[in-house]
Every structure is written in structure tokens, then in C-alpha cells.
Simulated assay, not measured.
Amino acid sequence: MSKWDEIKKRLEHLGGSVDLLADGHKLSLVKLHNKKTIFVRVYVNDLVKFEWTKAEEEKPVHSEGRFWRPMKRAAYKKKAYPSLKRIFGKKEADRAVTPRVIGFVPDFGTEGAAVAHLKKHFPDLEIVEPEQEASE
């Protein structure tokens, strides 16, 4: 079983968690719920600081934001495209309805989404076994 499958398996059930090491940071992934919504939250060094959500030029301002999900939004909805095109022209209208990264959030909708993000950006991360934590 690959480490990616192992991470998904540990996050399969509500309350499931897994600790990881990536780029010198300890990541804790926990499957939580908020009333009817179930999601996976990523804690970096056992913290979630919302100053880490900031983005400049579609990159995280703080290095801890790299582990979180990029949140993309467009300035206008696609529904407004025809009127924007008449007002500003095609080039500007295309730019206005194209989503871009405006911040980073610690929550992923599914364990698969969290694993896909980590797999893409941190292929060499390690799973920290519970007995390793106790001995440190």
C-alpha cells in the first residue's frame, strides 16, 4: 500500500487523523464536521493561523500557506460576461470572469482532495507513526 493510500485510509472515517512531515513542518490532517459539512482540516505545526490565508500574485505570503487549499474566485460571474464584453471588450471581459487565487484555506472537501494537493506539491513527505511521536 502506498503512503498516499495509507493517508486516505486513516482519514476515511469522521475523527480520523494522520501526522506527516513535509519540508521541515509537522502537518496534522484531521477529518472534522461542522453540522452537515464534513471536511479535512490541515494543521501546520499544530496551528491554524488565519494570517496564513493571505496571497500575493497567486502565491502564499507565509510559507505555511503552501500546505492549504488555494481558493479561487473571479471578479465577476460568467453570467455577466455578455454585458462585460460590451462594456470593456473581449480581452478585459475574459480576464474578469477567469478565476484566480485570492487566498488559501486550511480545509479540503475530501481526503482525496487533500492527498492530491500534497502529492502534487510535496511528493517526498513522510507519515509520522504514533509510536515515533511518543518517543520524541
Score class of each variant (00 low, 15 high):
Leu84Cys: 13
Ala113Trp: 06
Arg10Asn: 11
Arg41Val: 15
Glu111Ser: 14
Leu14Met: 06
Lys85Thr: 02
Lys9Met: 12
Gly16Trp: 02
Lys9Pro: 00
Lys54Arg: 15
Glu133Ala: 11
Pro99Trp: 05
Glu57Gln: 15
Lys120Asn: 08
Pro106Ile: 01
Pro70Trp: 01
Lys79Arg: 15
Asp46Thr: 07
Leu29Asp: 00
Ala134Lys: 15
Ala22Ile: 06
Gly24Arg: 05
Lys49Pro: 08
Val128Pro: 00
Gly15Glu: 02
Thr98Asp: 01
Gly112Pro: 01
Ala96Tyr: 02
Val48Ala: 09
Lys36His: 14
Ala113Pro: 00
Ser17His: 14
Arg69Gly: 05
Phe88Asp: 07
Thr110Gly: 01
Gln132Tyr: 10
Leu118Ala: 04
Lys120Thr: 09
Val48Asp: 03
Ser63Tyr: 06
Arg41Asp: 10
Pro60Gly: 07
Leu29Ala: 10
Thr98Gly: 02
Glu12Val: 08
Glu129Gly: 11
Leu125Ile: 02
Thr37Ala: 14
Arg86Glu: 12
Ala114Ser: 03
Ala93Met: 01
Arg86Ala: 09
Ile87Trp: 13
Leu14Glu: 13
Ala134Ser: 12
Glu126Trp: 09
Gly109Pro: 01
Ser28Trp: 10
Pro60Trp: 07
Glu12Gln: 09
Gly109Ala: 13
Thr37Tyr: 07
Arg95Gly: 07
His62Ser: 14
Glu12Thr: 08
Glu133Pro: 12
Ala80Glu: 11
Arg100Trp: 10
Lys8Ser: 14
Val18Met: 11
Ala74Lys: 03
Val44Trp: 04
Lys36Arg: 15
Glu131Lys: 06
Val61Leu: 06
Glu131Arg: 10
Ala74Asp: 01
His62Asn: 15
Val101Ala: 06
Trp68Gly: 01
Thr37Asn: 11
Arg66Trp: 10
Pro60His: 06
His25Lys: 14
Glu6Arg: 11
Leu27His: 04
Phe122Arg: 07
Leu32Thr: 10
Pro106Arg: 04
Lys119Ser: 08
Asp124Gln: 11
Glu111Pro: 00
His121Cys: 04
Trp68Leu: 10
Phe122Cys: 12
Phe67His: 04
Ile38Arg: 10
Ala80Lys: 13
Glu131Cys: 03
Thr110Gln: 05
Pro130Ser: 02
Gly24Trp: 05
Tyr81Phe: 11
Tyr81Trp: 08
Pro106Thr: 01
Lys35His: 14
Ser63Trp: 03
Ile38Asp: 07
Asp107Glu: 11
Asp46Ser: 13
Glu56Leu: 15
Leu29Gly: 00
Thr110Ile: 10
Lys119Val: 02
Thr53Tyr: 09
Ala80Leu: 09
Thr98Phe: 00
Ile38Met: 12
Arg95Pro: 06
Phe108Ser: 00
